Computed example of a mutant assay.
Amino acid sequence: MSTRRTAAPVRVTPEGLGWEPSGRWVRGRTKGVTVVDSRHPVLVWEPGVPVPLYAFPREEVRADLLRPAQHPRTGTHTGSRIFYDLRVDGEWLENAAWTFPAADLAGHLAFEWSARTGRGLDHWYEEEEEIFVHPRDPYKRVDALPSGRHVLVEIDGTVVADTRHPVLLFETGLPTRYYIPREDVRLDLLRSTSHSTACPYKGTAEYWSWRGGADIPADIVWSYPEPLAAVAAVKGLLAFYNEAVDITVDGERLARPDTHFGAALSARSADRAP
């Protein structure tokens, strides 16, 4: 007779922090120095923040490289009271680490990820795989499925993509993204940009902007030239932000979704305006 094991539910502290132990071996490095080497990390979800972070037992952290922060970032990270500066290669990185006030997480330290906040540790690994931006959420799923749907993309009334061979990417909590073969995209209507982003689920993306004169946000098209293995089907294909273009699937015009990406596109365009 076998016994089926079920995962323990995420625990929630009185401060509203969700947390659960992770079985992954996690390491964090910066400037070639391993600051975190933990086989007992804890995943933590802060209230109102859609992605998790890691906290680590203090004994699995190079605490000798830390000092109480000279200018603590009060009011951040769910009431955290104690922040630490990190010294690596003769340089102090301010507010690189902190503790949570929750009793459940006593004795644990969390660290900033430079790819997400612009400060902190810049290389992270789960087992032997490098991960980017933030830990992958065990409750989030990403599926890239080849499809026979007819997908039409228009910008300001101009057809820029028309395909019957898309790859549909389904990601928990986000609108479906439609990845289109390059031969089915009017690349002459787009220009490549220097913008790039990293995603812990898909990899590093490159971007294009619309060449037309309409008031269209910059960087509305992207592609993963070397995606992570889990979404290999989107390699080299182009996707358009549903928030900024008109997409028709099998004859049905999709409503533009309201997401934080739409706000970010508008803000980025405003920053680049003359």
Rank of each mutant, 00 (worst) to 15 (best):
M1I: 09
S2D: 14
T3R: 12
G16M: 15
S22D: 15
R29W: 15
G32Q: 12
V33R: 08
V36E: 00
D37R: 02
S38Y: 00
W45R: 06
E46Y: 10
E46I: 08
P52G: 02
Y54G: 04
V61Y: 10
D64Y: 07
H71D: 13
R73M: 14
T76W: 12
R81D: 11
D89I: 12
G107K: 05
G107H: 10
H108E: 13
W113L: 06
E128N: 12
K140E: 02
D143G: 02
L145H: 05
L145R: 01
R149D: 10
H150E: 14
V151D: 07
T158V: 15
T163G: 02
R164V: 08
R164C: 10
H165M: 04
L169Q: 04
L169V: 11
F170Y: 08
T172D: 00
P175S: 13
P175F: 06
L190T: 01
S192V: 07
T193E: 07
R211S: 08
A214N: 07
I216D: 10
A218H: 09
I220N: 04
W222Q: 03
E226A: 10
A229G: 05
A232P: 01
A233W: 01
G236Q: 09
F240S: 00
F240W: 01
I247S: 04
D250M: 05
A267T: 05
R268C: 07
P274G: 09
